[in-house]
Amino acid sequence: MSALAYQLVPVSGWNPLVLILLALIVGVLVYMIYRLGNHSYKETKYKREPFLSGNSPADDPDSLHIGGSNLYWGFTRALKRYFEPLVRGHTGLLNDYLYWFVITVVVIMVVLYFV
């Protein structure tokens, strides 16, 4: 292995024994922080349900979980000018796939010839 590679991924850094020791130390710290917590927690019937202004979750099951395409909508909306042409370019038509193929061949040929 070249010298630079040894600096990049030094074998000793990934020594499993070191990792296990680190995990144990972190575990002890976590336990100490846990001991500082409040021990008067009591589980009651509604305590862990999501807060829906006092309504029961069974009345409106769709409101319980936000997932799928609703997440990151802000990110996609903000970068609309990049995403819309990109998604539109993925048409799904076989003809377009082959046009891209031909265009790539031409571009690379031109680059290889002149450079």
Binding site: Y46, E49, G54
Partner: peptide
């Protein structure tokens, strides 16, 4: 009508 809802809100408030 609000009996169960009041109890829910009370329980969903964390201690203390």
């Amino acid at each position: 009508k609000t009996k169960e809802r009041v109890l829910r809100v009370y329980e969903q408030t964390p201690d203390p």
